[in-house]
Nucleic acid binder design. Structure first.
Length: 108
DNA sequence: CCCTGATTCGC
DNA sequence: GCGAATCAGG
């Protein structure tokens, strides 16, 4: 479970593009919670809305087995033609779409 | 009913 | 820092 540069880039781009946390989460294979949390860590977030959710008094004694299961038997062999795909600058819509379709293709 | 984002907590 | 749990609103 390592947020790779492409993951973060995709996340941020999609998010900025107007996609929903759920959509991005699905794309990356995470939960929207993870996406939102990651966005929060990045300091992006969208609307700094007031804490609607009250600071609940952690009334959850036994949540569940969480991130203990972080196994990804997925080998990444997607671009045999381009061993070095580097985007030094911002992504254009065209490039974004390209990486997106590529990700979707090799993902699902 | 479904979805959305936001926040807090344990690891 | 990560993901899940959970809340609150639409």
């Amino acid at each position: 479970m390592g947020w790779d540069a492409k993951d973060v880039a995709l996340l941020k781009k999609l998010w900025a593009d107007g996609h929903s946390a759920g959509q991005i989460a699905s794309r990356l294979g995470l939960s929207r919670n993870a996406v939102s949390a990651k966005l929060q860590r990045l300091g992006q977030k969208r609307g700094r809305k007031p804490p609607t959710a009250n600071p609940r008094i952690v009334s959850v004694p036994k949540r569940k087995v969480a991130q203990l299961a972080c196994a990804r038997p997925a080998d990444k062999v997607v671009s045999p033609r381009k061993p070095a795909a580097t985007q030094p600058k911002e992504f254009t819509k065209r490039q974004l779409y390209a990486m997106l379709v590529d990700a979707v293709r090799n993902t699902g």
